[in-house]
């Protein structure tokens, strides 16, 4: 601040641009889309047969081999949220790479905000995932590949923020966080591949009957999907804006304190 010669280029992410004008509109649109989509998934999409288990299985105290499940509706929420969280992680890794290339503080801020969004959506994914396993498979938790991967991803993202909090030097913090964001991005698909491809005899093989989805299922799903992605983007812009304000405020306070001290 007060240093007009070198300017503030690269310190703060650009805010107040078209994206921020769009953010509140997107937020409203996202709420509308997800709500309508969710309602449609109940009233329009037909009920689906749940998991067909090898042989019979006890689900919710009932011996079943095949059951009509209302819990399948969780899927309309679960999958869009999971995809949004992964997109946020991709964005975080992208900004992390940009940061390491340029060393501009703004990319660190952007990467960090993407991680925050990722965390929010990963937690939502986990919550719905656990509900899903409970009502579809009859257990609260199973080390199923997708669930495991998201659990591990959640731990890594939480670790990311613990790491950030444990470093005082801002530049070092930014570098380490960027490195971790990139590793997290690479590790997650590997985790999914390995948990999926390593043969295991312990878990029941769960197959879903009938691969196809009708229009009445795809439309609500797509509505919620777009809604969630928009929601993620809108939250990102809003959060970014408030963080930049905060950073500028801090810098200003510091300058003022300096001036008062030297006066």
């Amino acid at each position: 601040m007060g240093d007009k010669r070198t300017g503030n280029a690269g310190i703060y992410p650009a805010v107040g641009t078209w994206a921020d004008t769009l953010a509140p509109i997107l937020l409203l649109l996202a709420l509308l889309l997800t709500t309508i989509g969710f309602v449609l998934s109940f009233i329009w999409a037909p009920p689906v047969y749940g998991a067909s288990v090898n042989g019979v299985e006890v689900i919710g105290g009932q011996v079943v081999s095949n059951v009509l499940l209302i819990s399948q509706k969780i899927f309309y929420f679960h999958m869009p949220v999971a995809i949004t969280s992964f997109l946020a992680l991709v964005a975080a890794a992208f900004f992390a790479v940009r940061f390491l290339m340029t060393r501009e503080a703004r990319f660190d801020t952007m990467s960090r905000v993407c991680m925050e969004i990722a965390l929010v959506f990963v937690i939502m994914t986990m919550a719905t995932g656990v509900m899903w396993t409970r009502f579809e498979w009859g257990v609260w938790w199973t080390w199923e590949p997708r669930l495991t991967t998201y659990f591990i991803l959640m731990l890594i993202v939480i670790g990311y923020f613990i790491l950030r909090n444990a470093i005082d030097d801002p530049e070092r913090r930014a570098v380490y966080a960027a490195v971790l964001a990139i590793i997290a991005f690479v590790d997650t698909p590997i985790c999914f591949m390995i948990t999926r491809l390593v043969p295991s005899s312990i878990h029941p093989v769960v197959l879903r009957q009938g691969g196809g989805m009708g229009v009445s299922m795809i439309v609500p799903l797509l509505m919620i999907m777009f809604g969630m992605v928009m929601l993620g983007f809108a939250l990102y812009r809003l959060r970014l804006r408030s963080i930049v304000l905060e950073q500028k405020c801090d810098a200003l306070t510091e300058t003022l304190e300096d001036q008062r001290e030297s006066a």
């Binding site: 591990i152 731990l155 670790g159 613990i162 790491l163 444990a166 971790l180 997290a184 390593v198």
Partner: peptide, 15 residues
């Protein structure tokens, strides 16, 4: 902190 980062990242390998 090492444990917090190390265990989740190593999970697939250990698996």
């Amino acid at each position: 902190l090492l444990a917090v980062l190390f265990v989740p990242l190593l999970f697939p390998l250990v698996y």
